[in-house]
Computed example of a mutant assay.
Amino acid sequence: MERRGKKYQEVAKKIEKNKVYSLAEGLKLATETNPAKFDASVEVHVKLGVDPRQADQNIRTTVVLPNGTGKNVKVAVFAPEDMHESAKKAGADIVGDETFLKQLDKEELNFDVLVATPAYMPKLGKYARLLGPRGLMPNPKAGTVAVDVAKAVEEAKAGKVEYRVDKQAIVHLSVGKVSFGEEKLSENAKAFFDSLAAQKPSSLKGAYVKSVNISTSQGPNIKIENPIA
């Protein structure tokens, strides 16, 4: 704590060290303990009792946050030319076919989400090492491999986000910005937890959720009661 800035130490005093808060209390505290001068993201971190090495426990899916993420999501579409116009109307920021591949050749990744048609996926194979580690490779589970690219674009723009368990069996997800306020953050968080509950593997023995924590991007950690029954 001594190594933290004065602002961090000041806001951290609002959090009782060993107390486990309700979701509503935690979200309220998160909005009050943002030490940054910018509108920080409010992040949820869930430690699960799964083994990510097991195929049926390697959780990866999407959820539509009802109030969006608070971020301007830049969406790129890699699809045949006859789909370009509808993709643009749906809000795509970058649309292309062969010209788009030339951008990838130059490692120009000026987008947050990449949508591709199933037929165009093989063409992205050579870029797996570029896109994969950055979470940009289109995936059917994420809804980014789609026949209806316009719909996929609309969903991405509206707040559809992907989450997945990492090697430490933790799921991390931003549920909005501090400026959203408690009500909108709560609606987003509940949508996420409902989605996560539905992903519980049938083969799992023992506790599904081990711990839940909330914090802003640079703020102190807040322990939360398990909201998943």
Rank of each mutant, 00 (worst) to 15 (best):
V11G: 02
E85C: 10
K89Y: 09
K47W: 01
V77G: 09
S217N: 11
D194I: 04
N226R: 07
K14T: 10
T33R: 00
V95E: 09
P80R: 15
L136I: 03
S86N: 09
L109G: 01
Y163S: 02
Q199N: 14
L109S: 01
P52K: 06
M121F: 00
F111G: 04
V171W: 00
A150K: 07
E98A: 09
N226D: 12
V20P: 05
A189Q: 08
F193E: 04
G176Q: 06
K106I: 09
S202N: 08
A229G: 14
D97Q: 14
L23P: 01
L114R: 10
G159K: 05
L114D: 10
D97M: 13
A146W: 04
N18W: 07
I15L: 12
A152L: 11
G70T: 08
A146I: 03
R134E: 08
V171D: 01
R134M: 07
F100G: 06
V46H: 00
D112R: 03
K71R: 13
K123P: 08
K7I: 12
R4Y: 14
F78Y: 15
V147T: 15
D105C: 11
S211A: 15
G91N: 14
K205L: 09
N18R: 12
A36Q: 03
Y208D: 10
A229C: 00
V50R: 02
L196H: 01
V42R: 01
G125W: 06
I224D: 01
F193W: 03
K47I: 01
R4T: 08
R60G: 15
V63Y: 13
D105T: 10
L101Q: 11
K157H: 06
A197Y: 02
K6A: 14
T62K: 14
H172L: 13
D56W: 15
S202P: 12
E81G: 02
P35F: 12
I222V: 11
R60H: 15
H172K: 13
R3M: 10
V145D: 09
E10Q: 10
A30H: 02
A150L: 05
V75F: 09
L23E: 01
Q199K: 13
L173D: 02
V115P: 13
V50G: 05
S195C: 14
A87L: 13
D148N: 15
S215V: 07
V175I: 15
M137W: 07
P140Y: 08
Y163T: 00
L65Q: 03
A142N: 09
K223E: 09
A142W: 12
V113H: 10
A79I: 10
L124Y: 09
V175Q: 06
P66W: 12
K89D: 13
A207H: 10
T61M: 04
G132P: 11
A24W: 01
I214K: 04
L48V: 02
Q54M: 08
M83F: 07
G96K: 12
D56V: 14
M137H: 04
P118W: 05
V50C: 07
G181M: 03
A12W: 07
K88R: 14
G96D: 14
M137A: 07
A158G: 10
K151P: 04
L185R: 02
P227E: 03
L65M: 05
E2I: 11
D82S: 06
A30S: 05
V165A: 12
L196R: 01
V209K: 02
Y163H: 01
S86Q: 14
Q57M: 11
G49D: 06
Y163D: 00
T99D: 15
V64C: 09
